[in-house]
Simulated scan of single mutants.
Amino acid sequence: MPPPLRLRPTMLSDLDFVVTVEDDAANRPFITPWERTQHEGAVRFPDFRHFIVEAGADGSRSGFVILQGCRNPHRSVELKRIVLQSKGHGLGRACVRLLKAMAFRDLKAHRFWLDVKALNTRALALYASEGFVEEGRLRESVRLAADGADGYDSLIVMSMLDREFQARVALGQEGPP
């Protein structure tokens, strides 16, 4: 069972932590890191929701998440980024469940979507098990040029619609992780 989890709005004073977690060797292969100024913009711009993930009894910072499209007139909200320090303890699943509820209940999304690198098999399995449906692939759309690698990876676009979320709620699949 994952430790207690909560999301709180990211403050500018959290950005050193955010950049450090993003730059961690365990996370870097799976994301395209942002400059600090990009995170500052996401914290300030109303179309984004930038949150610190706090976990455990002490509420220590465990990562961060970013939603984009929160004011999208088409009600299509993107899970832009989820980056956690600790893996394999259920925090990712707990975060995804909180974010789905936020997207559909609070932001009134019609569609909640994301893209994920094909090499991130762990995340792909999590998103599929949480009801996200693969929509397509952007073949070789991101360059891999770290740790001596020089090549490309594909992005897999996945989404969930509000009616799919409501069906999962009705089936009891959207409770606590």
Score class of each variant (00 low, 15 high):
Gly63Val: 00
Glu35Ser: 14
Gly59Ile: 10
His39Asn: 08
Ser86Met: 03
Leu79Trp: 07
Asp14Ser: 01
Leu98Val: 12
Leu15Cys: 08
Arg71Glu: 15
Ala128Ile: 04
Thr10Met: 07
Gly41Lys: 02
Phe30Arg: 03
Ile52Cys: 06
Phe45Val: 11
Val43Asp: 10
Leu12Asp: 03
Thr20Gln: 14
Trp113Ser: 02
Arg44Ile: 05
Leu114Pro: 13
Asp14His: 02
Arg61Gln: 15
Asp47Tyr: 03
Leu12Ala: 06
Ser62Lys: 00
Ala125Glu: 15
Ser76Asn: 14
Arg111Asp: 04
Asp24Trp: 12
Gly92Thr: 04
Asp47His: 06
Ala118Cys: 06
Glu40Pro: 04
Pro73Tyr: 13
Glu78Pro: 07
Asp14Phe: 00
His74Arg: 15
Lys87Trp: 03
Leu5Pro: 05
Leu99Lys: 01
Arg111His: 03
Ser13Val: 05
Leu5Gly: 01
Arg122Asn: 12
Glu22Arg: 10
Leu79His: 07
Lys117Leu: 11
Phe104Trp: 04
Ala125Val: 13
Ile82Tyr: 07
Ala42Ser: 12
Arg28Asp: 01
Ala25Ser: 05
Arg36Tyr: 07
Gln38Ser: 14
Thr10Phe: 02
Met102Gln: 15
Gly92Val: 00
Leu98Ser: 11
Ser86Leu: 04
Leu67His: 09
Arg97Trp: 07
Val21Trp: 14
Ile82Ala: 10
Val83Met: 03
Asp16Met: 02
Trp34Ala: 05
Pro73Glu: 14
Met11Phe: 05
Gln38Arg: 12
Ala123Trp: 04
Ala101His: 08
Phe30His: 10
Arg44Asp: 13
Asn72Arg: 12
Arg97Asn: 13
Arg8Gly: 00
Leu119Cys: 11
Ile66Asn: 05
Glu54His: 03
